[in-house]
């Protein structure tokens, strides 16, 4: 009686084409012959989303395919198999990943380097609509961002848990950054001029410390780009130069009850359009928004 292993390679490939994610990797764990067969496959799983989570004791891959969600967990000792599976998933993905999520709270040595190698080994740049990363520094963001297709990437979410200082000088030079439309930075102390955010139409930054001079530059950005519809929310732990910022805004307007927060309206020359700055002082929250 013939068995699966006695099937010619082209038939095994046909069968593998029907075995979805994650069963294809389970198949690779059954025996040596199928492991080497699965390792050599070039399958486009047409995933909708991919999440990669690395913690101190395990790694996991979560995928969404055909409206079904799957996940595979790897023990720390299975690091090689984890990267092999990741390579197989990423290398031949041709459709756009709606969401690509990477969480690496306890950095695995060489993780971003290996990710970069996998992404750069693809025949073309990976298409991603929304990139979300929980990471620690600019190098990690650059490693991933530089391997994604500019233009397709519209949303970037970067967060951390420990108020790391985040420089943005290198990442802001990437086309992927310049062509994205929506940015969210959460939990970092942003150590950069906020003008590096100027290419985004929607910005949300939660930073431990903000300097009043950065806010002035943001205001200038809104003043000098009247044709761009834009919104920007800055949340902060500490605003350095609070008084100077307040004075630089000019006289505020106060809404009638129930909203007591001050706001400032600026009109573009010869136009009914302009932008508004709202300062929710008690919530450490400043909002810029254009209106037309």
């Amino acid at each position: 009686m013939p068995t699966l292993l006695e099937m010619p390679p082209e038939i095994l490939t046909e069968i593998a084409g029907f075995v979805g994610f994650p069963e294809i990797f389970t198949l690779g764990q059954t025996c040596r012959d199928l492991k080497s067969f699965v390792d050599d496959l070039k399958l486009n799983h047409k995933l909708k989303s991919l999440s990669i989570r690395v913690s101190t004791d395990k790694m996991s891959l979560g995928c969404e395919q055909e409206d079904k969600k799957y996940s595979i967990n790897f023990k720390k000792s299975d690091e090689d198999q984890f990267f092999k599976s990741l390579e197989q998933i990423l290398k031949f993905q041709t459709s756009t990943l709606t969401e690509f999520f990477i969480e690496d709270p306890s950095p695995m040595p060489g993780f971003y380097c290996k990710m970069k190698i996998i992404l750069e080994s693809r025949p073309s740049l990976l298409k991603v609509y929304e990139l979300s990363m929980k990471c620690k520094n600019q190098y990690q963001i650059c490693s991933i961002l530089s391997s994604l297709k500019p233009g397709t990437l519209e949303r970037i979410n970067i967060s951390t848990l420990c108020w790391n200082k985040l420089k943005l000088n290198k990442v802001a030079k990437l086309d992927q950054w310049k062509e994205a439309k929506k940015l969210r930075i959460d939990g970092f102390t942003v150590s950069a001029h906020l003008t590096v955010l100027s290419s985004f139409q929607s910005i949300e930054v939660f930073s431990k410390t903000i300097f009043w001079t950065d806010l002035v530059m943001l205001k200038k950005l809104f003043l000098t780009t009247p044709n761009i519809s834009r919104s920007c929310i800055i949340r902060y732990g500490c605003l350095i130069g609070e008084n100077q910022w307040y004075k630089s805004l000019g006289p505020p307007t106060y809404e009638a009850f129930p909203c007591w927060e001050p706001y400032w309206k600026y009109f573009y020359p010869n136009s009914n359009g302009g932008f508004q700055i709202e300062w929710f002082y008690d919530f450490n929250d400043i909002r810029f928004e254009t209106f037309y």
Binding site: I15, F18, E23, T26, Q29
Partner: peptide
């Protein structure tokens, strides 16, 4: 091939 592939659904390596 789909019939054979369907047999793999939800199985562990030992079951496969």
């Amino acid at each position: 091939c789909k019939k054979v592939a369907n047999m793999a659904q939800g199985k562990t390596p030992a079951q496969l």
